[in-house]
Amino acid sequence: MTQESARTPHGSDSTGQGQSGGAPGFTRAQVEALFMNAAREGEAELLARFLDAGMEADLRSDKGYTPLILATYNGHLEAARVLLAHGADVNAQDEKGATALAGVAFKGDLALARLLLEAGAGVDVANAVGRTPLMFAVMFGREDMVRLLLAAGADPYRRDGEGLNAIELAHRQGGAALAQVLAQEQGNP
Rank of each mutant, 00 (worst) to 15 (best):
G25V: 05
F26N: 06
T27Y: 08
T27K: 11
T27W: 08
R28F: 14
Q30C: 10
Q30S: 14
Q30F: 10
V31C: 15
E32R: 11
E32K: 11
E32I: 13
L34P: 00
L34D: 12
F35N: 07
M36F: 12
M36H: 13
M36E: 05
N37R: 14
A39Y: 00
A39K: 00
R40D: 08
R40G: 00
E41F: 09
G42L: 02
E43P: 00
E43W: 05
E45Y: 01
L46T: 14
L46A: 11
L46G: 01
L46N: 03
L47S: 01
L47G: 00
L47C: 03
A48Y: 00
A48S: 12
A48T: 08
R49K: 13
F50Q: 02
F50E: 02
F50H: 03
L51S: 04
A53K: 10
G54A: 04
M55G: 03
A57N: 09
A57Q: 09
L59G: 04
L59Q: 13
R60K: 15
R60D: 04
S61N: 05
S61C: 07
D62P: 07
D62T: 13
D62L: 14
K63Y: 13
K63H: 14
G64T: 06
G64K: 04
G64Q: 06
Y65M: 12
Y65V: 03
T66M: 08
P67H: 08
P67A: 10
L68K: 07
L68A: 09
A71N: 02
A71H: 02
T72G: 07
T72W: 03
Y73N: 14
Y73G: 15
Y73F: 14
Y73W: 14
N74Q: 12
N74G: 05
G75V: 06
L77P: 01
L77N: 06
E78C: 05
A80V: 02
A80L: 02
A80I: 03
R81L: 00
L84C: 03
A85I: 03
A85E: 13
A85N: 11
A88G: 11
V90K: 06
V90P: 05
V90R: 06
N91T: 07
N91C: 07
N91K: 05
Q93S: 13
D94T: 05
D94C: 03
E95I: 12
K96I: 10
K96Y: 11
G97Q: 04
A98V: 00
T99C: 05
A100L: 08
A102Y: 10
G103E: 02
G103H: 10
V104C: 03
A105R: 00
A105L: 02
A105N: 00
F106N: 10
F106P: 00
K107N: 15
K107F: 04
D109W: 01
L110T: 11
A111K: 13
R114C: 02
R114A: 07
R114W: 02
L115E: 02
L115G: 01
L116T: 08
L117Y: 04
E118G: 09
E118W: 04
G120V: 12
A121V: 10
A121I: 10
A121K: 06
G122W: 10
V123I: 11
V123S: 07
V123P: 05
D124E: 11
D124N: 14
V125N: 12
A126C: 10
N127W: 11
N127C: 14
A128V: 14
V129S: 15
G130Q: 09
R131S: 12
T132W: 01
P133M: 09
P133Y: 05
L134V: 10
L134H: 07
M135A: 08
